[in-house]
Simulated scan of single mutants.
Amino acid sequence: MKTIRCQVEKITPFNGAVYQVLLRPDTPLAHQAGQYLCVVMGEKDKRAFSIASAADAEVIELHIGAAVNEPYPMQVVEKLQQNSHIDIEAPGGEAWLRHDSTRPRLLIAGGTGFSYIKSLIEQQIQLGQTIETTLYWGCRNQDAMYYEQLARQWHSEHPWLHFVPVVEEAKPQWDGKQGNLLAQIQQDYTSLAGFDVYIAGRFDMVGAAREIFRQLNVDEAHLYGDAFAFIK
């Protein structure tokens, strides 16, 4: 990975626990959709976040889940708020979009794992691809689904893209599924053979998903998620 200086353009809270961060690199960042960067906090302290923007975007978008009781990511937000520029190391990760594949795609996001999925979908849209794609996004409740409107917009504008929102705690008139994200996928699919599957979220969720997907005959050569490099 290369070290790149970035201007901190904007930091905006989506809600009480997730921040949108926009960075403008001093030199263009050459990366593929689905890769991540590391914010340099110190010589030996580099913290990874998925890049939420498509591969050729001039501004890098991050989604940082940083509730006040989570000091590790909140320290990053505070550093960004206190400085006009920041160093990053990028790009990293092997779970980038295999855009040459014609297999149907299943995209799965838990919480701020949506940042990773957003990059993949925006890249598909820019490439003009119409490969059948289904997006599952699981959150604790609707308030936590910070980019719900964008995901529903994709669903309505692109016939090839199907959005399935899943929340654990649903309000009346909720237009989506209620329950556990992985249980919902188990209910909806009897087999994942033939799919390209991309997943991002907490490591424990991703690890549990892999075990479930193995039972659904997933081809692990086509199961993509950078978390797998850390939970072998």
Rank of each mutant, 00 (worst) to 15 (best):
M74F: 01
A55T: 01
A48I: 07
H63G: 14
I51V: 10
V59S: 14
A48K: 06
Q75W: 10
L62Y: 00
A55N: 06
S53F: 10
M41I: 09
K46C: 11
Y72W: 11
A67W: 00
V40K: 12
V68F: 05
G42R: 07
V40W: 09
N69V: 11
L62D: 02
Y72R: 14
S53V: 06
D45R: 03
V68W: 07
P73R: 01
A67G: 10
A57H: 07
A48N: 11
N69W: 13
K44R: 15
G65A: 14
E70A: 15
I51R: 06
I51L: 11
E70K: 15
I64A: 06
A66M: 10
S53C: 13
I64Q: 02
E70D: 15
S53P: 09
Y72P: 07
S50T: 07
I51C: 08
E61Y: 05
E61G: 08
S50Y: 00
A67F: 04
E61P: 08
P71V: 01
F49H: 06
M41N: 01
S50H: 08
V68S: 10
A48M: 06
G42A: 10
A67T: 09
A48V: 09
D56E: 14
E61Q: 11
G42W: 02
K44D: 15
P73T: 06
E58M: 13
V68K: 05
Q75G: 12
K44V: 15
K44N: 15
G65D: 13
H63M: 09
E58C: 12
P73E: 07
E43Q: 07
F49G: 04
K44F: 15
F49D: 06
K46G: 12
I51Q: 08
F49I: 05
H63Q: 12
K46H: 09
E58Y: 08
A52V: 08
I60Y: 08
G65S: 13
I51P: 01
E61H: 11
K46T: 13
G42D: 12
H63D: 13
M74C: 01
E61T: 14
L62W: 06
E58K: 15
H63Y: 12
N69A: 14
E58H: 12
A57N: 08
V68Y: 06
V40Y: 04
V68R: 11
M74V: 04
E43G: 03
M74T: 07
Q75I: 04
V40T: 09
S50C: 02
M74W: 01
D56R: 13
K44A: 15
A66W: 03
V68E: 09
E58D: 15
V59N: 13
Q75N: 14
Q75F: 03
K46P: 02
D56F: 09
N69I: 02
M41T: 01
I64Y: 04
G42N: 10
A66N: 03
A48D: 06
A67Q: 11
E70Y: 15
G65E: 14
